[in-house]
Amino acid sequence: MGAGVAMKAYWVCVLAVFLTACGPGADNNLSSALLPVAERIRDGVRDRGQPGDGFTATRASLAADGFNDPFLVARLDARNIRTGLIQAGQNRGTVTWLAADGATLTERDGVLSASRGLGVDLYTAETAALGQALRAGNSASYVRRYRHLDPLAQIVVTRFDCTLMPDGREAIEVFDVSFTTARYTEICTSASLDAPQIENQYWVDQDRSIMRRSRQWISTDVGYLTLERVID
């Protein structure tokens, strides 16, 4: 938000004027059916959901805590928050990942198709054309439509004209292990004045055909997420 003063003023208002209630009649203890699962990550990665330094897991600590299944680490660039994610569901080639705070990310072949729990989420994004281009490994041009919800809860479709360009090979380190990747930059432009241009990056692990790292746009409000696949 960046508007810290406004946020503070409005919490004061919320408390003073909008009358916080206590007692079982007040649905204050929000949770979701996913939270019990999320707690496992919270305990495991010692991520208390705190911004910045809250995330302390290493490859060794993850192994020691019994994380052998696929594991993803996401960083919300604008807020400098890192969290670990485990797989919570799969459906027709998409994988939904669950973070310690209950947020979820859904991707297909490493390309994000949805987020939940980040605020102004990525409601859905088309992934097919980009996925195809990444598999082919060539430059490509295509259209992708992103959907978001506006403050009236209506779907806003933004049509992006995208170009994918291979940037060549790059050796990257993810949690102290080196991987050989092919890097791609995707530049998308739209007629929307709110998001005239976005730039996503992808590092595809050549040996395992897996998205090792990526930096992908969620929304104007949330900004970019950096994702690293730690355990395959």
């Binding site: 996913l34 459906n91 669950l98 939940r116 989420d121 409000d221």
Partner: peptide
Amino acid sequence: SGIRQEGPLPIT
């Protein structure tokens, strides 16, 4: 900015 809450259960 948006309504922030935990994600829903994925459909399996």
